[in-house]
Design a protein around this nucleic acid. Sequence first.
DNA 1: CTTTGCATGTAAACCGTTACATGATTTT
DNA 2: AAAATCATGTAACGGTTTACATGCAAAG
Lengths: 173, 173
Amino acid sequence: MALNPTSRVVLGMIRLGRKTGYEIKQLVDVSARFFWTTSYGQIYPELKRLEENGLIHGEDAATNGRPRRAYELTDAGEKALDGWLSSDEPLLFEMRDEGLLKLFFSDSMSPAERSRLIQAMKARHDEVVEKLSSIEDDAREKGGGPHDVLRFGLAFHGFCSDLLQQMDSEVTR
Amino acid sequence: MALNPTSRVVLGMIRLGRKTGYEIKQLVDVSARFFWTTSYGQIYPELKRLEENGLIHGEDAATNGRPRRAYELTDAGEKALDGWLSSDEPLLFEMRDEGLLKLFFSDSMSPAERSRLIQAMKARHDEVVEKLSSIEDDAREKGGGPHDVLRFGLAFHGFCSDLLQQMDSEVTR
DNA sequence: CTTTGCATGTAAACCGTTACATGATTTT
DNA sequence: AAAATCATGTAACGGTTTACATGCAAAG
């Protein structure tokens, strides 16, 4: 069975502990959001596909009267996940930044407009820094990969924010 | 007429000077690649759509016997581009980094495997730095938005490279 | 009792890449 | 003469988001 990017996130998140589709989505949104996204429209069909192919196994895990289905990795699922983790295929890296695109075409803007754009870009990075900061204590306790990635995100968005601040002061200077 | 992300790149690139579809693609690949991509499969249909809607105007610009069609902005096109540039809609920002995804799930890896992953991630950023460096002299002369964006990319990918180097030394320590 | 959150799912629309087809010109 | 580059385009495929539909539980 061929793994697509969504399969990988789903398998990885499930290995961190038995999870429902809903929980996977929450986890991605909270801890992986700055470098990965998913939607229910991908997760639920993918869970079905992974179970049909024997990589995960779902069980009824209703709380009170509320229906829930929680999934665990099978041995085949563990193998598939480890296979991807240790594979040498080139690592997908994509960035799409409409702010930089505007800046690229900004020669027709006044300094004030340009400064506004740069500040708006900076604000987005600051938001991410805040969000990541708010979960840092929790992540530090748990440590491991998720914490390393969080530190990366914090440094990365902090750097972008500073860089943009500096660009702005050059513009308004 | 509603502008999608591709319309914006196309309009912006054409404002930098009369361009063919082929030239737009080259320009994006060379100067915008680290924060934006496009393919012929998007560009050519988009050029048709923009011309049908009166935002650009194409003319035959054959060199020798080779057929070419070069486009310029119409007044409506200039307006549409400026409208987008000065709009306040939230700026799309997306990042997809399979390296960080692997790192997130890397708790089952040995230090050596982890180091290999981090080095592979670093290598990708170094490649971008090299590519951007190779066009810096040219961009500096022209200045403006494209040069600002290039400097941003250089700083950004250089920072990622350094950060990963540091993470690696923590792992192998 | 109303809103927010938990929980699962589907369908349509949209976006984007890849692969293919074609052919001329320039460089090696 | 062959290979690389210029040049335009389409079709198929795959991935992703958005909107919709449904319903119960907890919190205000």
